[in-house]
Amino acid sequence: MNQPLAYIHPEAKIAHNVVIEPFSTIYKNVEIGEGTWIGPNVTIMEGARIGKNCKIFPGAVISSVPQDLKFAGEETTAVIGDNTVIRECVTVSRGTIDKMRTVVGSNCLIMSYAHIAHDCIVGNNCIVVNAVQMAGHVEMGDFAIIGGSSAVHQFVKIGAHAMISGGSLVRKDVPPYVKAAREPLTYAGINSIGLRRRGFTSEQINEVQQLYRILFMSGNNTTEALDKIELEMAPSKERDEIVNFVRNSGRGIIKSYIGKDAN
């Protein structure tokens, strides 16, 4: 049911059972899937592709023009997956010529006042807590969590199942399965509680712990540690995911805390 006080461009493609509350504005070249609720005072701009059963709360702005001086008006999109909740005053910019889209996956929770900049790729089942500021081109793996008021540098990659402490300055890549905290941001153990909640076995968790002990606690440099991991640890999904992430890190990964064993 669409309220008469909402403005919906006649070319927007809105599923039949979408609810759009008063004073919201839907531009042209927008698609909104079935069962989605658009709260009052929401702005959905050109290029938005919003999935099914989403909830978008007051003050949010989706698919705004990128805050990038290189943007030249190219036709790009901002994609929101199914069942994602976007809370009050969140802003999601659309892509630029780099990736042509910004993506927030399915089953995500993006809390109030967060900003997701152009060309970011946020995976499925992610949580971005209040007032997180993500610069352009950031990539965030499935089930990752960024604590409130954190700032993420452009081009940073955050691995799947990683958990970043609130108030962090994320300047380096954060590998999969880890907790990251302190200033400067450092390895603080693995996200064992999150992994258990998601069905990882004790054997898998122990393997990940051992792998990160070699990577962060062995006294080897990163290349030596990766070689040692591949030599001493049997191939597995988790081992290969971590090794590939670290080898392909463009900005370099966070370091270990100089002190007690974080595990």
Rank of each mutant, 00 (worst) to 15 (best):
I44F: 03
K172M: 13
N53Y: 13
H153M: 13
A135R: 13
H9R: 11
N41W: 11
G81H: 10
P40H: 11
E11L: 12
S93Q: 13
D227P: 07
T77N: 12
V132G: 05
C89W: 03
C89G: 03
E203Y: 08
E232S: 10
I116D: 00
G167Q: 02
N263W: 05
H115K: 10
K70E: 05
R94Q: 01
I80R: 00
R101V: 10
K55T: 13
K260G: 14
N41M: 10
N221H: 15
T84Q: 03
I146L: 13
H161Q: 08
L195E: 04
R171D: 14
A6Y: 04
I38P: 01
M111N: 03
D98E: 14
C54L: 09
G141K: 04
V103G: 02
G33F: 08
G167N: 01
I254A: 06
H16M: 11
V85W: 04
G147Y: 03
Y113A: 05
A12R: 12
I50T: 02
Q3C: 15
I50L: 02
Q67I: 08
N2L: 15
V208N: 11
M111Y: 02
C89M: 07
F155T: 03
N53L: 04
F23P: 13
I20E: 00
G51K: 07
G167I: 00
H161A: 06
R182C: 07
I8K: 04
K228H: 12
V243C: 07
I193D: 12
R239T: 07
E232C: 06
E238N: 14
A48K: 00
A60P: 06
N206G: 13
T186A: 13
R101Q: 15
V178I: 15
V128C: 07
S165K: 12
A78Q: 08
G194E: 04
V30Y: 00
